[in-house]
Design a protein around this nucleic acid. Structure first.
Length: 561
RNA sequence: GGGCCCGUGGCUUAGCUAGGAUAAAGCACCGGCCUUCUAAGCCGGGGAUCGCGGGUUCGAAUCCCGCCGGGUCCGCCA
């Protein structure tokens, strides 16, 4: 409902500006701690109209006309240079009504192909991939909630040297059948790398595998598929445990063999600024100093070219392309965008996130220097279990485990998504396992409390009904809570347009905070019958929005904790 | 060497795109609150030259320039 309120305030303010004959660019209407909405427009009018901001604000307010009925605005006043808008009782009432009826998200806004994670299938996901996967997955959920149809893709780099090393290693070493499959693959990969380092002449065999794979040798393809699938099934299991939504795996090799890569190279030769160094082909892109190699001296394709073919295909098959990439892909993504422009295909929108490193340095699967997502999940769930166990010895074992899973994975997801993607993270195990009080468990706890009130109400025969009077909700904490609830759509809209998921995490925490204040201030079950009905309605609305905002974060909402 | 990103209380961060109302939170620390719907909660307290130096502006954490520290990338790896 906040969006409707903002729209109306904007309209009213624009009318006043027109009436007072001010020329303006934007109305500069923002959320504020001092009002429900505040405009700073008087500052920017001060200079052209040679008057103090306070006088101009006063003048604008004089011309302001708030409709007599059917309005969401209670009042608009000039406070010094600021014009402050306040929402009225109808706004509060409509907010609750809208939540109860279900917030409409029927608007169809087109199709998005979003790519995230795309980790090489040479081992398990590690904490770096985790950041990619979680940011990507929350983005998917935000965009879906905002009305887009989203297909999530995982680009599978099966043509690189790493995978060739895995395939080569698998012919000489046995997978450890006792381990999760992706971990078994990593062991072979690490061991194979060591063998190759000690015997450089064996590298030719790896090169031979790569050539045969690109050429389409049936036997080699079979070996590759087996190795990649082995790793993938492990990765997929981790995704499920992390509550990552369904992804479609797109194999890089398909673009190489389908002729799409050749097609891209031919097209770039015609449309681009090409130079040749021997048999290699280089593409000079506008504004980028370094030329992009699009074909090797030996005539084979490169990762970049194949990626270009992939992105051309994506661009043609949806309305928006979004890529969640690590910082190391920043230059590559700029080159990609420029080259796609040459090809006449829309460029992707990039969400670039900074690295996760360990105190000992950067992560490396090949060197075995990483913390796997599985290990982290195991430990955090265990930690969550001891926390549950500490508080709830009345519950049976399976119930405690179930809650611990939700809390542990939730805490992990929240911690990853709460910080801005361009912040570099140095991973600290103790820190990660310190189930932060104001993180996911805090929000989940608020949800559980709301559920608990509703359960107790039902037992006493006080069912939530449509028959309540929102006007009875006059306590400060009640009003604050409703206002927080009203912002849900606004938060989703902002996150969907800025592609900034960490703000959703922050808003979710603030909502939980508001609920906890209400919980403390306003007894529900012991209130008078009429007030009780209103408060029960509010609790139910809070439950719905807390559940929804957690769902957008991909965090499960337990009904008890 | 060049490009891009980050630098905010002891620690982790939000705010920076579109400059404005006392710089906002969490952790840690100190003190208080469970006979009332789950204390994973609530209330109070101390603690910040917003990396440093200039500039623009009536006004700068926010914009511009320089420097320092960290990260990342820089043609035939992916």
């Amino acid at each position: 409902m906040f969006l409707e309120f903002k729209k109306e305030a904007e309209h009213v303010l624009k009318e006043a500006l027109k009436k007072a004959s001010y020329e303006y660019e934007g109305v500069d209407l923002e959320e504020s701690e001092h009002a429900d909405l505040a405009s700073r427009i008087a500052f920017s009018l001060a200079r052209p109209y040679k008057n103090s901001p306070a006088i101009i604000a006063e003048d604008i307010v004089k011309h302001l006309e708030i409709p007599a009925e059917n309005t969401l605005i209670a009042d608009a006043v000039a406070v010094g240079p600021y014009i402050n808008f306040y929402a009225n009782d109808l706004f509060l009432q409509m907010t609750l009504q809208e939540i109860k009826e279900g917030i409409a998200t029927e608007r169809k806004r087109g199709k998005i192909i979003l790519e995230h994670t795309s980790a090489n299938p040479d081992g398990p996901l590690h904490i770096g991939h985790l950041r990619n996967a979680i940011i990507g997955d929350v983005l998917v959920r935000v965009l879906e909630r905002a009305g887009y149809e989203v297909e999530t893709q995982y680009y599978l780099n099966d043509m690189g040297r790493q995978i060739a090393v895995v395939v080569w290693g698998a012919e000489r070493l046995a997978y450890d059948a006792t381990k999760k499959t992706d971990h078994a693959v990593a062991e072979v990969y690490i061991a194979a790398n060591r063998m190759l380092e000690e015997n450089n002449e064996l590298l030719d065999e790896v090169g031979e595998l790569m050539r045969k794979y690109e050429a389409g040798d049936a036997d080699v393809i079979r070996k590759y598929k087996a190795a990649v699938q082995k790793c993938l099934s492990g990765i997929q299991a981790s995704f499920e445990r992390l509550n990552i939504q369904q992804v479609v795996f797109v194999w890089e090799s398909e673009f190489a063999r389908s002729g799409a890569v050749k097609g891209v190279i031919e097209e770039l030769k015609q449309k681009g600024d090409i130079k040749r160094e021997g048999a290699a082909i280089l593409l000079q892109l506008e504004g980028i100093e370094k030329a992009l190699v699009i074909q090797r001296t030996d005539g084979t394709s490169l990762y970049t070219t194949r990626d270009l073919a992939y992105h051309r295909w994506k661009g043609k098959n949806c309305d928006r392309v979004i890529d969640v990439f690590g910082k190391d892909h920043e230059l590559v993504s700029q080159q990609l965008a420029k080259a796609l422009e040459l090809l006449g295909v829309k460029a992707p929108e990039f969400v670039i996130f900074a690295f996760v490193s360990l105190p000992s340095g950067s992560l490396s699967t090949r060197a075995g220097r990483y913390i796997s997502a599985d290990e982290l999940m195991d430990k955090i769930e265990e930690q969550a279990y001891t926390e549950v166990d500490k508080r709830r010895d009345d519950l049976d074992e399976s119930k405690k485990r179930k809650i611990a899973r939700k809390v542990g994975i939730g805490a992990l997801r929240y911690d990853m998504v709460k910080v801005s993607p361009d912040k570099h993270i140095v991973f600290d195990f103790d820190d990660a396992l310190d189930i932060e009080k104001k993180g996911a468990p805090f929000i989940q706890y608020s949800h559980a409390r709301a559920c608990s009130i509703l359960r107790a109400a039902e037992e006493k025969g006080y069912a939530v009904s449509e028959d309540y009077d929102a006007a009875l909700l006059k306590e400060r904490s009640e009003i604050e809570l409703i206002k927080k609830l009203s912002k849900f759509c606004h938060i989703i809209e902002e996150a969907a347009s800025d592609l900034k998921t960490h703000q959703v995490a922050k808003s979710a925490r603030e909502l939980a905070e508001s609920f906890n204040l209400f919980y403390k201030d306003c007894p529900v079950l012991t209130a008078d019958a009429e007030l009780r009905k209103s408060r029960l309605a509010l609790v139910d609305c809070a439950r719905i929005v807390l559940r929804d905002v957690l769902a957008v974060l991909g965090i499960e909402a337990p009904e008890e904790m």
